[in-house]
Design a protein around this nucleic acid. Structure first.
Length: 1075
RNA sequence: GGGCCGGUAGCUCAGUCGGUUAGAGCGCAGCUCUGAUAAAGCUGAGGUCGUAAGUUCGAAUCUUACUCGGCCCA
């Protein structure tokens, strides 16, 4: 027998109960341990950082991560779900800096790297407990007991192995990376820190500088010939390229001039002909004003290779070859400011550096890390902003300054100390991902992206514009870069494992260290020195690896793999079947996973990915700590429960879209879906208990009742749909379809079936109704299990486990439903939709004439749109009759319908159309055969009235007011009720009115549904006639479970009310019958 | 400045291949029904489908430009 289920429910309590049940029965563990023979389904958990409390956006990701493995488990897979923690990186260090009240690297080193890193280690796991609690509470099943942690030695060694693999393939190199740098703090700033310090209206110099073309040029260059160059030099004044900059100090490091390859450039001569300048044609007038004449024009691409004289001598050779300063093409050059020629100093601009890499330019520094000019330049020794003055003066003196002004613009300053930031190229370690760009792009095509547009859009775009991946950071708390450099000969060597390192370690200095027990972090690993082949001593380079590298090695490091023969590669643990993160991971984890897998295995590392949009607040703004609009997940969960939150997050919006979040919307989704489901469930259990219904596991066979056949048909269609959506990684539409089904189950199936459960005979029809509803509820519990695991478990336990010990003891160990497509009856589905349409129109018709549904009527007329629909409707006429409370349903033709309709000209259409001919049309229309006109118009045919041909739009058809039928016309359907009353109908109406009132009294008196009662009444003759008539009296007793209905004074303890029915007053008393 | 996504009722969202009258839920107003419901039903108010142009017999849907919002990059 089932446990009774109240319609009142607290979802949070229900969830606590089931959390305990899962724990006691070890359900999650058994999905793995008892499934050793099943195929693996791999989830890779993108590790969160546990140095802050989880927010609602984390819940979003965790719910979507959870849904798919739960579904796959029920489909017969062994779902691998190992948790993980991201523990390294700058945010952790900044947190500790705050704690210590320090801000610079120097202070960290003074404090002691060992102590600093110990604090980092502590800090990063500070909120692990909160994360674990929330994870468990929302029902995200992931193995947190065996989570991988990126700071573990085992994890670090996997990273080392991968660096070594890439190193051996010559894919790791040291180059320069331009970063925003604070010369006072002597440190790089993260992009987040930079964005804290932008200042508008900063005054800076704005200088236009001549770059005279070199006397020596490449003979192959057509452009220089047309400018008048030959072996003997320039014919006429030497032309100069004109370029613009706001940082004169970077001119000391100028190595190239960049032009837009697709734009047009012009060689122009000054009005007096003494000067010739080359710049972008669209910029000529704005920069030079009027009077300059165009001598020749060139595509930017034609200028590539043009040699010029740099303002300062800074490089004459590179990699053993003579170096010449040249014009080079770059897509980033714009036409909106400057001269369309961009001065390029690879050491002091990110784009400059990229261009430098493309064309193999050296990186020449003329400024030190404190921002002081070095070498032999104007202003040497001064801070760059002061040196600007000296440099400008020098250029003016040498005639290279074309124009000098000042501008106001937005410039970044250090958020800590207010010093202007410099973009500065620092040595950095790279992985040569560009070598595998084509493979990365191609293999991205094998990944199943949701939403699809990310694949060729944001992610594809990112891959196509790939630049080498900078993987090192000059910091402390991170995986140390396993590269040692010789003090003597500068040789670098990479160590991929501890054994090799141990063999090569310098016993004299390292001997005392126990490598196996060593914390592989700084500063300890830095103490290990190695003897170089040259005999010198090698020290580890100071850098640590970026935490994105940590995340990218996760597929291998979570198994502590240290070789490409590791069993994980052949055991199905790679690649992942599924990952899920928010869209901000496009350049983060999605990329780091993909890049490393392509480089290492020439394979994608995930097959399917759901890429989630951001969560915004209820006003559509991004949630952030500073705005204070963060929604705390616990308050939502405590108020509405985890299933409610899950359901809302899963179904309210497509996962890829940015979405607004508000607690009100969660509440709405509870009311709309969870409560409807619960009430249906509660209804079933309540009546099943009354009737002693026991489910059988045997297939009850084809149900007899049309309604049951419909329910089962819709249910099987639902299984087909939900399975398809889940297989397509679309839990949102799966959920929406379930919601639609539950709605119809509750408001159509159950409402229509109420009397079948309520009637006293325990016959086959009743049993069929129970069996149908039972089947629907049990199937729903399984379909819902991945989405709302708690309520699904609650229903399954009570409906299935309690009465059948042979089934799995948790819905999450059960098999996902399989559709019986033979039971899907599409025609019946359409017919039922039609019934709903007709019933809806019938109610509208009743409403029009204020005819209560409680009052039976003789007949309803239905004109369907097509004859075929009429045939579809007829077998279900009973349902229409019942819903509309009429004695008869008649399907009628257009012609018959026309009798009850009126037609007039649609003035607003006909008026403008016929203007002055309107009176004669009206005359003709007045004498026309109205029924013929209506009939034609209903079928959409044009109709001839006198000399006029009228279309449907010219006519306005409406139910006729002088017909006894009150009708409604909508979309080609006509439904009309017969408003004529007979004494019998009237009496029946009164009887129903009495039943209605007595039922209300039962409820007010708080009787149990099954209580038998005694009824007393005092009323006038008309009502008494109803109460005492054979047919109606019996009907009233049956409906109200009355053992006696008698005239007289109620017992003193009866519940008594005085009522008015149809203007007639009566007094009724009700009381529980004895025994 | 570049890339991607979105803009449909007061709110949250559907809208299939371009095709009849652009829908649902919530909210609001009125009515009805009800011994499962914290429900449900009916009616009404509420829409320039972001704007404009184009393609087409026909555009919420396709194309282009613009605009607003969001994200990423520079």
């Amino acid at each position: 027998m089932f446990q009774p289920v109240s319609s009142k429910v607290s979802f949070p309590e229900l969830e606590d109960r089931n959390l305990k049940l899962w724990k006691e029965r070890e359900v999650f563990r058994r999905t793995w341990d008892d499934a050793a023979d099943k195929p693996l389904f791999m989830l890779y958990e993108g590790p969160p950082t546990a140095n802050g409390t989880p927010g609602i956006h984390h819940v979003l990701a965790r719910v979507f991560k959870d849904v798919i493995p739960r579904y796959k488990t029920m489909q017969g897979f062994r779902a691998f779900r190992k948790g993980g923690w991201d523990t390294h990186g700058l945010p952790v260090e900044i947190e500790v800096e705050k704690q210590l009240g320090i801000t610079t690297k120097q202070e960290i080193e003074e404090y002691g790297i060992d102590k600093f890193n110990a604090l980092c280690r502590e800090s990063v796991m500070r909120y692990v407990k909160e994360w674990e609690e929330l994870t468990e509470r929302i029902g995200f099943w992931i193995d947190m007991d065996n989570a991988y942690i990126t700071f573990d030695n085992g994890y670090i060694q996997s990273g080392w192995w991968i660096i070594k693999e890439l190193w051996d393939r010559k894919l790791v190199y040291q180059g320069f990376k331009v970063t925003p740098h604070c010369p006072r703090c002597v440190t790089s700033l993260s992009s987040h820190e930079v964005s804290l310090g932008y200042q508008e209206d900063t005054e800076d110099p704005s200088v236009f500088v001549r770059f005279p073309m070199s006397a020596e040029q490449d003979k192959a260059l057509d452009a220089v010939k047309s400018m008048g160059w030959s072996d003997s030099g320039w014919d006429g004044p030497t032309p100069s390229v004109l370029a613009w900059t706001t940082t004169p100090w970077t001119l000391t490091a100028n190595l190239a001039l960049a032009v837009a390859p697709k734009e047009e450039y012009a060689l122009v001569a000054s009005p007096d002909g003494a000067e010739r300048l080359l710049l972008a044609k669209p910029r000529v007038e704005e920069v030079l004003g009027e009077g300059w004449t165009v001598q020749a024009t060139f595509k930017g691409s034609e200028l590539q290779g043009l040699r010029y004289e740099p303002p300062f001598v800074n490089a004459t050779e590179h990699e053993g070859q003579p170096f010449h300063h040249r014009v080079l093409p770059a897509d980033y050059v714009g036409m909106d400011d400057g001269t369309g020629v961009v001065h390029t100093a690879p050491a002091y601009g990110a784009e400059d550096q990229e261009l430098g890499k493309t064309f193999n330019l050296p990186t020449v520094h003329t400024v030190d890390l404190q921002g002081h000019v070095t070498g032999d330049y104007p202003g040497t020794g001064k801070f760059v902003k002061e040196a600007d003055v000296d440099i400008s003066a020098d250029l003016t003196k040498r005639g290279l300054m074309f124009r000098q002004e000042a501008i106001l613009h937005t410039y970044p300053f250090c958020w800590r100390c207010g010093t202007p930031l410099l973009y500065y190229a620092k040595p950095s370690w790279y992985i040569r991902t560009t070598e595998y760009k084509d493979e990365m792009v191609a293999l991205n095509g094998d990944i199943n992206w949701h939403p699809e547009h990310i694949q060729q859009g944001r992610f594809g775009e990112w891959l196509r514009n790939n630049v080498d991946w900078a993987i090192s950071r000059e910091r402390y708390w991170g995986t140390p870069l396993p590269i040692w450099r010789c003090d003597t000969c500068d040789e670098d060597e990479c160590f991929g494992d501890l054994d090799t390192l141990r063999e090569r370690a310098d016993a004299a200095t390292t001997g005392a260290l126990d490598l196996d027990g060593l914390d592989l972090h700084r500063p300890y690993i830095d103490e290990v020195t190695v003897i170089c082949k040259c005999g010198g001593t090698m020290h580890r380079v100071p850098e640590v690896l970026d935490c994105w590298f940590d995340s990218g090695v996760m597929p291998y490091a979570q198994f502590n793999a240290t070789s490409s023969d590791d069993p994980m590669f052949t055991g199905g643990q790679f690649p992942a079947d599924y990952i899920c993160e928010a869209v901000d991971q496009t350049r983060g984890w999605f990329y780091s996973l993909h890049a490393l897998a392509v480089l290492l295995r020439n394979k994608p590392s995930y097959k399917n990915v759901i890429c989630l949009g951001l969560i915004l607040d209820d006003r559509g703004e991004k949630m952030s700590k500073t705005k204070g609009n963060i929604v705390e997940p616990w308050s939502v969960i405590n108020a509405h429960g985890a299933d409610a939150l899950r359901w809302y997050l899963l179904t309210a919006a497509p996962p890829g879209n940015a979405r607004r979040f508000s607690q009100d919307l969660v509440e709405e989704s509870v009311r709309k879906f969870l409560l409807t489901l619960w009430n249906t469930y509660s209804f079933f259990v309540t009546y099943a208990l009354l009737d002693g219904f026991e489910p059988t596991s045997a297939d009850p066979g084809e149900p007899v009742a049309e309604l049951d056949r419909w329910g089962i048909s819709e249910l099987n269609q639902l299984i087909v749909d939900v399975t398809a959506e889940m297989e397509g990684y679309n839990p949102t539409d799966a959920g929406r379809k379930i919601e639609a089904f539950v709605g119809e189950l509750s408001t159509w199936y159950v409402r229509r079936s109420r009397r079948r459960f309520w009637k006293s005979e325990n016959d086959g029809d009743k049993r069929s109704a129970y069996q149908t509803l039972y089947t629907c509820l049990v199937t729903l519990s399984k379909l819902l299990a991945p989405l709302t695991p708690f309520i699904a478990e609650e229903m399954y336990q009570n409906l299935v486990v309690a009465s059948d010990p042979s089934v799995p003891d948790s819905v999450h160990l059960a098999v996902f439903p399989k559709a019986d497509t033979a039971r899907i009856d599409k025609e019946l589905g359409e017919a039922t939709q039609l019934v709903m349409k007709v019933v809806s129109m019938g109610r509208a018709a009743r409403q029009k004439v204020q005819a209560k549904v409680r009052q039976p009527l003789a007949e309803v007329l239905v004109m369907p749109k097509t004859a075929a629909e009429g045939a579809l409707l007829l077998p279900l006429a009973d349902q229409v009759r019942d819903e509309l409370n009429v004695k008869q349903v008649q399907v009628i033709s257009d012609a018959e319908a026309a009798k009850n309709l009126a037609v007039r000209l649609n003035g607003s259409v006909v008026g403008p159309k016929y203007t002055d001919r309107l009176p004669s049309l009206q005359k003709a229309f007045g004498t026309a055969d109205k029924e013929a006109v209506i009939k034609a118009a209903l079928t959409g045919q044009p109709v001839t009235v006198g000399e006029f041909t009228l279309d449907a739009e010219d006519l306005d058809i409406s139910p006729s007011s002088d017909s006894p039928f009150a009708g409604v016309l909508d979309g080609g359907y006509y439904v009309a009720i017969d408003t004529r009353m007979t004494p019998e109908l009237k009496q029946e109406g009164l009887a129903r009115e009495l039943v209605h009132n007595i039922q209300n009294m039962r409820r007010t008196a708080d009787f149990d549904i099954a209580d038998r009662i005694v009824v007393w009444y005092q009323c006038d003759a008309a009502l008494q006639e109803v109460l005492t008539s054979d047919a109606m009296g019996e009907y009233i007793r049956t409906e109200t479970l009355a053992v006696r209905v008698e005239e007289g004074t109620p017992d003193a303890d009866a519940h008594v009310e005085t009522l008015k029915i149809e203007g007639m007053e009566l007094t009724i008393g009700v009381k529980r019958a004895q025994g």
